[in-house]
Design a protein around this nucleic acid. Sequence first.
DNA 1: ATAAAAATTTAGGTCAATCTAAAAATAATT
DNA 2: AATTATTTTTAGATTGACCTAAATTTTTAT
Lengths: 219, 219
Amino acid sequence: MLSLVEENYLKAIYHLSEGGKEQVSTNAIADVIRTKPASVSDMIQRLDRKGVINYTKYQGVKVTNEGKEAALSVIRKHRLWEVFLVEHLNFSWDEVHEVAEQLEHIKSPLLIERLDKFLGQPKVDPHGDPIPDAKGIFRAKPQQPLQHLSEGSLAVIRAVKDTSSAFLQHLDKLGAHLGTQVKILEKVEFDNSMQIQLDQSPPVFISNQVAENLLVQEK
Amino acid sequence: MLSLVEENYLKAIYHLSEGGKEQVSTNAIADVIRTKPASVSDMIQRLDRKGVINYTKYQGVKVTNEGKEAALSVIRKHRLWEVFLVEHLNFSWDEVHEVAEQLEHIKSPLLIERLDKFLGQPKVDPHGDPIPDAKGIFRAKPQQPLQHLSEGSLAVIRAVKDTSSAFLQHLDKLGAHLGTQVKILEKVEFDNSMQIQLDQSPPVFISNQVAENLLVQEK
DNA sequence: ATAAAAATTTAGGTCAATCTAAAAATAATT
DNA sequence: AATTATTTTTAGATTGACCTAAATTTTTAT
Ligand SMILES: [Mn+2]
Ligand SMILES: [Mn+2]
Ligand SMILES: [Mn+2]
Ligand SMILES: [Mn+2]
């Protein structure tokens, strides 16, 4: 049984290793958890003893299968709660994160099973992130940033890479949501910005940073 | 700002003082919290420093106004979550307690405001306990035990005193729920049991303990 | 009013989770 | 290859939340 704090560490380590990185470093963990490396050093020894990661001194850590399962269970809860908050309590997608960060630690298998059913077994959260099922299985997240498409392409927004309030609120203003259709009208070579059309709205310019953080599916 | 553990202590102290008791004793608190009196002694000094209770050595504690407010906020959350679990996630009234015990500590004023609205601003929880509003105001809980009514009386079940699974499941079997009408057909002097009729069902016998824990409103 | 019993507090210790400062190991540069 | 810089770990402290054992205070009974 993991404590709330241990769950947060494990989730962070799992996320850091998602990008294909084999070994996750102490400093990287300290960064996301917002603690000091010394504290991380302590904690990863504890998590190693508990069998959820493999740790070799000075070489970083790697999540074990057991650890992956535990991490995915927390992530599943986090994302299910986000869906609940947005679909039933009228939260906007930029307001859900901190609350889900707390709710993800509620321990009750029955609760999650029932919540999942209540929500209609959703496959993605409000940011387009996939929701693992009870066994930890999930579809991969769309990985294609809008930036990588060429002039004239047609695509649909499927997820966001950045989930900061600032970014999400900016998207709201533009009228860009999950499911919105995007057409690339013009790519500006100078600053990598582009002019796009969102659904049937009038054309708008978006910066390279925005385009990099919009994950789309081309049609 | 109170920690999860401090909130649990404060809630326990508040509940202990509800029966009109001025001073709440160390041992009584240790009993409900399931800790040792020595630990309680520690904690009540901390809660005193935080201003939520007044503590005088060897004389027990009393909740301050500030403490009452904090306790009621936790109780409000506990009961709102219980309503959610029963009305939307198909929990039965004997399954909600431990989960609500966790959920009551989630910190987000927005969440509670929205949850309350989503639930339709309920006034009582699944056990008939009143739900304080955002300001901590609530109607008193019905206090009349079925046991105290006389033969031939007609009443409606409004709340339960005991909320243990064992008791609640027993009530389910009998068909006794909040809102069920009860008619007292016969009171047995020997063991204080009684024969009653629940709504239109066939008569049943209930023990004195059951009758003491059913809170009713006479018609 | 004393003595015995019960309740409460204090002393001293443990464990989880953090920190700062110092030491050790690894990586990067000259 | 040697020096410097960076990363990581260890040592030692602190705080919250607990515990047991011992001391103290209050209550109850003789
Ligand atoms: Mn969290
Ligand atoms: Mn999300
Ligand atoms: Mn609780
Ligand atoms: Mn209740």
